[in-house]
């Protein structure tokens, strides 16, 4: 690990000011950042420890819920309000990592976690995300875990998390403090970016901006599912995952908010899927048409070609479970 200067932020404004420097990174739970520093993928000159800032509470806000940026993944998944009203969020969090990691991992840090692309985490390999202009080793290399949607000629990495996939299905928002003391709020669906020609930027955070909370809209009830397909049954990243908020009345969908993990550089949400499903009677043929929309323009890179049919089947499996089709 490269040497760095360690500073503890006593106030949010202090953290924001320090984080405005391009060579400074905020540290919360550290479960991803410390690892990347060991690998010398991240080499900040200064670490600003924000872990003691008062952003640790889950509070009711309006009809929804506000989850502080430093609330641990464990605390969110165990919260009775989350379990009762937003089970898809609890399910997604519990499907990820191990108990030890969830005990330290935070809401804000989880949103900011970086890809597990093998070329990104190995500094001896080319990677446009880690070192812009150095090339992408994965496009013609080992690409089993890589993206099939929204890729660019510069990067085919995936966003690795589960929690954000559920937050995208829930249409939650990210609350962000800015260096000048003001704040802004961004839908989770717009927080992560596609790689384009700037894959070094995972999300829309600007220098000096720090996530302060995630806000959940009023509960919508219905059936909430998180289906994660992975290489082993626990403690593995998603090859493909689906977060689903589904409701039916008189055998027609009245809600079908879906988001997908493991397929792209961001949690994938396509509003056309809900437009197709809502008002329609559930059937395998309908689910196939939803998958056609999802996978329009999907591109495999050899080793990850399997993700395209896998996403189609996982989507169908979730909608079958939620609607009773094929039961």
């Amino acid at each position: 690990m490269r040497p760095f200067d360690y500073q503890r932020a006593e106030r949010l404004e202090h953290a924001s000011q320090l984080a405005a420097d391009a060579d400074t990174l905020p540290l919360a739970g550290g479960t991803n950042l410390v690892d990347l520093m060991k690998l010398e993928v991240e080499t900040p000159q200064t670490l600003v420890d924000i872990s003691r800032l008062p952003l640790r509470s889950i509070a009711e806000e309006g009809a929804g819920l506000r989850i502080g940026a430093l609330v641990t993944n464990t605390a969110t998944a165990a919260d009775p309000r989350v379990r009762a009203d937003y089970p898809v969020l609890a399910r997604a969090i519990l499907a990820g990592a191990s108990q030890q990691l969830r005990n330290r991992a935070t809401t804000g840090g989880n949103l900011c976690q970086r890809t597990r692309c093998y070329y990104f985490t190995n500094i001896d390999q080319p990677c446009n995300k880690r070192e812009p202009g150095s090339g992408c080793g994965a496009i013609e290399g080992i690409a089993r875990i890589h993206a099939v949607l929204g890729t660019s000629p510069h990067c085919i990495a995936t966003y690795p998390g589960d929690m954000a996939v559920a937050l995208a299905a829930l249409d939650a928002r990210v609350e962000i403090a800015r260096e000048n003391g003001s704040s802004r709020s961004v839908p989770v669906r717009d927080f992560h970016r596609l790689p384009g020609d700037t894959p070094e930027r995972d999300n829309v955070l600007e220098p000096g901006e720090i996530i302060t909370a995630v806000t959940l809209p009023a509960p919508v009830g219905g059936t909430q599912l998180y289906r994660k397909v992975r290489e082993r049954s626990s403690y593995a990243f998603a090859l493909c995952s689906v977060a689903a908020l589904v409701a039916l009345e008189d055998n027609r969908f009245t809600r079908a908010d879906l988001a997908f993990g493991g397929l792209a550089h961001k949690p994938w949400h396509d509003p056309r899927i809900a437009e197709l499903l809502v008002g329609s009677e559930p059937s395998l043929a309908l689910f196939d048409r939803a998958a056609d929309l999802l996978l329009e323009g999907a591109q495999g890179y050899g080793e990850n070609d399997f993700k395209i049919p896998l996403a189609r089947r996982t989507l169908a499996a979730v909608l079958c479970e939620a609607s009773g089709v094929g039961a």
Binding site: T74, Q100, L101, N103
Partner: peptide
């Protein structure tokens, strides 16, 4: 592993289990 993947370094901090390899001591 020293990368939070194996759990051999698990300890309790404030009674809560964590991977001590992924936590900077100063924090």
């Amino acid at each position: 592993c020293d990368h939070g993947q194996c759990g051999a370094c698990t300890v309790l901090v404030g009674g809560v289990r964590i991977n001590s390899c992924l936590s900077l001591a100063v924090t």
